[in-house]
Each structure stands twice: as C-alpha cells, then as structure tokens.
Design a protein around this nucleic acid. Sequence first.
RNA 1: GGUCUCUUGGCCGAGUGGCUAGGCACCGGUCUGCAAAACCGUCUACUCCGGUUCGAAUCCGGAAGAGACCUCCA
Length: 465
Amino acid sequence: MPHVGMYVCGPTVYGDPHLGHARPGITFDLVFRYLKHLGYKVRYVRNITDVGHLENDADSGEDKIAKKARLEQIEPMEVAQYYIDRYQKFMDLLNVLRPSIEPRASGHIMEQIDIVKEILDAGYAYVSEGSVYFDVKKYSESNHYGILSGRVLEDLLATTRQLDGQEEKRNSVDFALWKKASPEHIMRWDSPWSVGFPGWHIECTAMSTKYLGEQFDIHGGGMDLLFPHHESEVAQAMASHGTQPAKYWIHNNMITINGQKMGKSLGNFITLEEFFTGNNVNLEKAYSPMTIRFFILQAHYRGTLDFSNEALQAAEKGLKRLLEALKTLEKINPSAVSSVNTTEIENQCYDAMNDDFNSPMVIAQLFDATRIINSANDGKETLTAEDIICLKRIFATFLIDILGIEDEQSGNQLQLINELMQMILDVRQIAKDNKDYATSDKIRNALTALNIVVKDSKDGATWSF
RNA sequence: GGUCUCUUGGCCGAGUGGCUAGGCACCGGUCUGCAAAACCGUCUACUCCGGUUCGAAUCCGGAAGAGACCUCCA
C-alpha cells in the first residue's frame, strides 16, 4: 500500500478556537479522508504550538503562553492543556478526524536544539547575546530565500519593519532559531547557547523531520503562514539537511467577515463555541457543527470564504436537503428501467475530488443526486435496484466518508423525542378528526414555537426540527 | 511603499476559450381545512475599457475597486 506523509501547522494554544481554525482543520481532514479512501496509508502529523511564539513589541518578546499564564497565576502548561482540550473538543464536534500524531513543541526541545546545531555547523546561523539567528543573507548566497512565497531578498531587506531587539541581528530579515529568555520569562529550557526557548519556525522543521523524514509528501497550513513561517521552514530544511521539506505545499485561504480577514489580531473572530451557542452579537442564531463544516466545504479551500448569517443559513438549509434525500432514498421502490445515469454522477464526484479536492463540485453533484432521488420519489424518474445501490454508495462515500458529514439528529435522545412526538401528533389527529381546529392549531403553534415543524399530508402528519 | 491575489445573477459560491455548476432567497406550480413545510419548475450573471480569436466570464494589455502578506495570526 502506498504511503503518504502529511504535515500541517496546527494551532497555537493560547486562545479559544475560532472559525478560522475550523478551515484548515476541515480542509486537511478532507485531504486526509480522501487519500485514505483512495487506499493510501497516510501518516498525518499536526503539531501543537505550546511554546515559542513571540508577542509583538508591546510585550517585549515574551512568550504568548507564558504571558497568559502569569496573568492567570497558573502553570503555562496548564493554560496550554486547557486550550488543547478545547481545540480537540471542537474539532471532534466538527467531525475532524484526529491526526496520526499530534506532537507538542514543548516535547521536542531536544530535537529543535539538534537542528539549530546542524544549521550552525553548516554556517547558516550565528550566535548573538545568547540567541541564535538564521543568517538569511548568507543562506541567500547559495539558495533562494523566497522560493516558496515569491519574495526577493532585496525587497525584504528594504521593507522589513524595525522592531525592538533588532540590534542583536545582522539583518532585519534574520529570524530567531533560539531565543535567550529574559528573567521574567518562565517557559525556559537549557541549551548550549543560553537558558531560553526555541524560535517559532524551528519546531515544525524538527517535528516534521522526526516523524516524516527529511522530505515528505504534503505540507499544509493557512495561507497566512506562507511567509515567513513556511518560507523559513524551507530555509531551515535546506540549511540543515539540504532538501526541500515537502513535495507539495497546500495552503487554505482565509475566512473573511465584512470583507476582512477574521483573525485574532483584528479581534473580529467568532469562536466555535459562540457559533454552536449563538452567543455572539454577529450571530442571528446558533449554528450546528455540521452547518459550519458544510459551509466551509461549499467553497474551494484556495478561495477566501465570506462569513455572513445569510450564507450560514443557506448552508444549513442545503445540508438539511441532502440529508433528507438520503432518508428518502430508503423508501424508493426499484423499477425495471432507469431514466437516469447515476454512475455518471459518481464519476463526476471522483473527477471533482481529483481536481485539487474540489469539494464544492462534489456537493453540486450530490444536489443533482438529490433532485433525482426526490423526482423518483415523486414518480417522475425511475431508478433500478442498481441505481439505488449506486446512489447509496455515492452518499455513503462522498457525503459521509469524504466530506465527513454526519446526521446530527441521530442522537440517543431522538428515540424518546420520536415517541413523544408521535403521541402529540396522535392527539392532534383526534382533534382534527373532530374538526376541533382550535385545538389542533394550538398544538401546532406550540410546536412551531419550539422550532418543530409539523407537516400535514394525506397519510397523516409528520414532523421535523 | 514593496510583493501577490481577487472582482461571477438579490446573497453565497463553482467554472479558465464554444456545451452557458450548485445552494439559499424570490416567483410559479403540486400538496393542504388554512397555513407552514416538503417537492417540482422558473429566474441566465461574469467590474469597466481596449485587444487576440470564427468564438472570451475564461487569453493579453490598461483602468477602477477590494483583499492578503511584508509583524503574532489558521
């Protein structure tokens, strides 16, 4: 069985996961699921950054997690663990499969120090005041720093901002491989150069190399990580072992709100918990995890995706329609002749996935299948037994397995609710039989207030919510 | 300021030279005591100006607008 190694930059665990985190989570879950479906054995590594990110100048280079910890008077690892748990909880709710390995940066300090040593030995880094910096200018003499993001060194040197602490560096573009800890910095480790902490970019080089080797198949992450993070990973890999780290880079685009990137720094993000509870001024209502998942998959991962209540509600209704069709399919009796071409739909689904994981195209095919199913249920199309098997296979494979959609109404409570509802509807039917519409309407209105929809038909009433 | 990207119908969003996705909303129909829901159908767009071509949303040039990165960020 062919193997695939995939490394994706995971979250920095100093805040609650927001909609922005859902996108790479779901995007690379789609890749993971599809590659597995095709028969690849995938080792999917998604790191957790629990050390090393520097704050901006206002925080004097203090580690984000350490800062939060001092404010809250608890251990930094306690903060990290709290947000790791939160992250995993919400990814689970979004039906994002757990990666094969979820390494933490704090657990790989030795590996990071080793790579820094290698880069120093190769002559592409220098020690300054107990910190180690990557020498971008030296590296650029024999390599292209900017190969991934399309940058040119001269431009970078001309445009990089001047920040505090730059005087330790030979050039403003040089980035830290190891940082000496200031006295108040409580996350610290011993190293040959100082008691300190690793730079941001080195953790991914260390952990991807450890678990996937010097070169692996796919490296993923958000588009905002392209520069400088991934560019620097390339440089670190080239400087330490002379190879490009990844054969393919996949970057998911951003989610925007009012046309602007939804992000921590802009303060315009909505957390996943807020989506699920509806507890945010920008939300008209709560949205379920599957609505969020479907909303994200309805756009191609490379494009920006604009958040709005209208778009979320459109996704919610559309998804409901697909799931209803799946139930309708169970009720359809096969015909001798077929009036539709279901294998064509199946082929189109594979074509779409093979064309750079084009999930919106897959979804469009599923809606075509839905129209066929509903028409067949209406007697306007005919399906053979083979057609029905094929349609079931399409939904099971693409909607459930690959897009990772699950029917949220299939909980334990549902059985009880069903029985209660049946009783209520029986009572209402009696009232209707007696032409007591005041009573039947009272029941229906009360249910409507609970967001339960009653559907009257010739064969009696059904309900849904 | 530098580098890059984008601009599709009321909204969201595929599509990269001809065969004019899809969803939501609207509207029409079926169903119904009424209504809602559900289902079916309809609605034919590609920022603007030039150019290439038999033919352009799609390629080339220009303009306008928006965004991303250059600093932590998914």
